[in-house]
Write a protein that binds this DNA or RNA. Structure first.
Length: 196
DNA sequence: TCACTGGCCACCT
DNA sequence: CAGGTGGCCAGTG
C-alpha cells in the first residue's frame, strides 16, 4: 500500500465531476486556479465508494457537471476506445509544500509519468524498460511512482508490465489492468502479455 | 538521519 | 511453471 494522500488541501477550490454509466462511477478533479485536472479516479461500483475515495484526497471539494465532456472521454478510454486527449489539461506540476499546487509529489515521479505517457495504445513496456529509458536502474521505484499516478487511464500506467511479461500490479486491481489491455488489443493469455 | 517499504528483477530449486 | 530469496533504488516519515 502506498501512502494515502489524505486530506489534500489546495489553496483554491477543487471541482469534481462525476459520470455514471453502465453501473460504474467515474470522476475527475479539477483545480479551479489552473482549470486543469489534478486527479482522475478509476471507476467504482457505487457512488458511496467514490465519494469516500474523493474525500480521502480532498478535504474540501465542490460537485459540478461542468467537466462532463472530460469524464466521458475518460469513460471511453476505459473502454479501450481511441480518444484524442489533450495532455495539456493535466496539472503536471510538483508540489510537496503547503498549500499544495500540484498532484505530483517529486521530480522522479514526474519523469516516470512523462515517459509512460508516450507508450502507444495497444503496446506495453516493462518497468525495467521505463527505468532504462530514463537512464536509471530504479525499476522498483518506477513501480512505486506509478502506484502514485494521479492520472490513471490518461497516463497509461496499465501499459507497464513486469519483465517476464506477467501483468504485475495495478491500483484498480490486476483484473482491471488485464481488461484494459485486452480492450485496446493487447494479446494476453492467462496473466502474461505477448509481444511481437 | 536512516530504516523501512514497495505496481520489481534475476536467479535459484 | 510455481514459489522462494536476496538484491535493487528512490521516496517517505
Amino acid at each position: 500500500m502506498y501512502n494515502k494522500i489524505s486530506e489534500k488541501s489546495y489553496p483554491d477550490a477543487i471541482f469534481v465531476t462525476i459520470y455514471h454509466k453502465e453501473d460504474l462511477f467515474f470522476a475527475v478533479g479539477i483545480y479551479s486556479a489552473s482549470e486543469k485536472i489534478v486527479r482522475i479516479f478509476l471507476p467504482t461500483s457505487s457512488r458511496e465508494k467514490l465519494y469516500e475515495k474523493i474525500s480521502d484526497e480532498f478535504a474540501d471539494f465542490k460537485l459540478t457537471d461542468k467537466y462532463l465532456p472530460i469524464v466521458r472521454d475518460i469513460f471511453n478510454l476505459y473502454n479501450g476506445k481511441k480518444v484524442n486527449f489533450n495532455q495539456d489539461i493535466l496539472e503536471l506540476s510538483i508540489n510537496k509544500s503547503e498549500p499544495l499546487k500540484g498532484p505530483v509529489t517529486n521530480e522522479f515521479d514526474l519523469e516516470v509519468l512523462q515517459m509512460v505517457s508516450k507508450i502507444p495504445r495497444g503496446t506495453v513496456k516493462t518497468y525495467k524498460e521505463v527505468a532504462e529509458s530514463m537512464n536509471s536502474k530504479a525499476w522498483r521505484a518506477v513501480g512505486s511512482a506509478l502506484a502514485r499516478n494521479p492520472f490513471p487511464l490518461v497516463i497509461p500506467c496499465h501499459r507497464v508490465v513486469k519483465s517476464d511479461l506477467t501483468l504485475g500490479n495495478y491500483n484498480g486491481g490486476v483484473e482491471m489492468k488485464k481488461e484494459l489491455l485486452k480492450k485496446e488489443g493487447v494479446k494476453i493469455n492467462g496473466f502474461r502479455v505477448t509481444r511481437t
